[in-house]
Amino acid sequence: MQITDILAQMGGLQSVANDLGASESEVATGAEALLPAILGGFKQQAQAQPGGLDGLGGLLGQLGGSGLLDQVLSPQRTDPTQGNDVLGQIFGSPDVSRTVAQNAASQTGLDPSLLKKMLPLLAMMVTGYMARQQGGAAPATAGSPMDSDLGGLLGGLFGGRQAAPGAGGGGLAAMLDLNGDGNSLDDILRLAGKAMR
């Protein structure tokens, strides 16, 4: 299942569309272009954390944990401040956020200003979702929006690649191991490199 499908089923794309006064299809198109860069930023953070991917789990909590996802999904307008904090942490500079939005605009034809507003909200959803899954949320039933196949989820972030069967589970490292070979960093490095070009 594509990440945009999962976010749509959770109500995330509709919430972002409502917040930004955009159509859900615009948000879905923008999300497909922006999400790989967000994951690329998390990849860089995983490398920088003591303990690698395990250390990233602690960082997710510091950034706001699963509560960030709840904020975007709530009926109230989302304050993007914490999303901008996430972007500052994973990208290191507002210039990177602007570049990511501009690149996504050239790919999609959407207004760069819309994509720039969308970016912190997507960052909040990804952070919250990863934190919820890493925190050991009860597995959902097969095919539900909160699918427990995290490898498949993150594979969807990078153009619909699917994880090997059974690649879900095993914490954050398994979540980021897109090809199920037990080594997640090789997958993330290769895919994030594509996203950040």
Rank of each mutant, 00 (worst) to 15 (best):
Q102D: 14
T29W: 04
L178S: 13
Q107F: 06
A8E: 13
P120V: 14
I3E: 12
F42I: 10
G40A: 12
A22H: 10
S66Q: 03
L185D: 15
A195L: 13
L172M: 15
L63S: 01
A123L: 07
S23Y: 05
L191S: 11
S25G: 09
M118Q: 15
M130Y: 04
G151N: 08
S74N: 02
A101N: 11
G166K: 01
G11P: 11
A138R: 14
T141W: 03
A142W: 02
A48F: 10
S184R: 06
L178D: 14
G21A: 11
G58Q: 08
F158H: 09
G155R: 02
G67F: 07
V96M: 03
L63H: 02
G67R: 01
S74P: 00
G57L: 04
R190V: 11
D70C: 01
P112E: 06
L68K: 00
R132A: 15
M130S: 04
V96W: 00
D187C: 05
L39M: 14
M146W: 05
L191N: 13
G143R: 04
A174S: 15
M175N: 01
L115Y: 10
A31L: 15
K194M: 13
A31E: 12
Q102Y: 03
A105I: 07
A46K: 01
L114Y: 13
Q133K: 11
L7Y: 15
A104T: 09
R197S: 14
G21E: 07
A123H: 08
K194L: 15
D5F: 08
L178C: 11
Q102G: 10
D79C: 02
L87E: 06
A101T: 08
A22C: 08
S144R: 04
G12L: 06
G151K: 00
L191C: 14
Q14G: 15
G65C: 06
G61D: 06
M175P: 04
G156V: 02
L35A: 11
S93G: 07
L53W: 02
T4R: 06
D186M: 11
Q49Y: 06
M175Y: 02
T81Q: 08
A123M: 06
Q133I: 10
A37Y: 07
R190D: 09
A28I: 12
R98P: 00
Q107I: 03
G151C: 10
L87A: 12
G30Q: 07
D149C: 09
G159I: 05
R190S: 13
G136Y: 14
V27I: 15
R161H: 09
M118N: 03
M130R: 00
G180F: 08
L189H: 04
G168S: 06
I6A: 13
Q47A: 13
A142M: 12
